[in-house]
Amino acid sequence: MNAPAKQPDADIRELSYSEAIREAMGLALERDERVVLMGEDIGVYGGAFQVTGDLVERFGADRVMDTPISELGGAGVAVGAALTGLRPIYEFQFSDFAALAMEQIVNQAAKMRYMLGGEASVPVVFRMPAGSGTGAAAQHSQSFEAWFGHVPGLKVVQPSTPEDAKGLLLAALEDPDPVVMFEHKLLYKMKGHVPEGWYTTQIGKSAIRRHGKDVTIVASAIMVHRALAAAEKLAGEGIEAEIIDLRSVRPIDGETIIGSVRKTGRLLCVYEGVRTLGIGAEISAMIAESEAFDFLDAPVLRLGGAEAPIPYNPDLEKAAVPQIPDIEAAARRLARREV
């Protein structure tokens, strides 16, 4: 007989990324009568990516509200509800559809507190399934986090793990200001440790996922996992990469990134959004303007999405965003000072 399998204790309880988000929403609905979920097909259908799942059965259709296919209006109703005392979480079916609701997110939610001189608060959370890799082509695969990150008044988070997905969503709910959470669709099934109960992950603080002395890789969302995989390969060559999981696009955690670059002298930014005018540009500029500049031993490199819409053909789609070998090669060039 084999030895009995080790029982998983509570500390290593595993949930998928989507289960973690659902657990956060369930806790919020239980704890606070003001919380409502809104979105297209989030009720009996369970959400396009099954994130809301059975929540409608537990909390009823008045609190897990199927909206018409009206992204502008739906987002605006969430804004108005937040402004008057509810705590809405609005799910976009795909983050691409947020383009239909930019007016309410950018002109209304983000600016309301400021325009009204601090006399009002818009505690709304917009959830955005984002990213490529599903074969859904140009209008269902984009990564808009830099767009929203460009708007003062919004906070923008991008969890890469189930634990952070839950913690950042609960932090977003507790936040008095509008928060946009980008959820990478390829991460929904990824499993990982998720603590029980209510906890929050600080918005604006990045996480060092791997320590290393040779090159700093700042990555977000699924790119964190690709960077970690690349780092393992590089370690075999004696190159130790430090992986920073950005977690928050606005505010951005300058302290952690600058500290790491001061140590390694090399920086690679990896993100899925279009490379030009993206997150990497911001981080590069931040380093150029910081005390870390004097510690640089090589130019800063960016790996981002291609200057093209996300294509349908699977090989083209893969080529449109950074993959593990791309990260490996870029980090190697940096470490060997081949740039």
Partner: peptide, 19 residues
């Protein structure tokens, strides 16, 4: 924004109904 307040008013109505 022309029309900006329309969905917001509906949100205020939703709050009134829910609470």
């Amino acid at each position: 924004i022309v029309g900006g307040g329309l969905p917001i008013a509906v949100g205020a109505g939703l709050t009134a109904k829910r609470l």
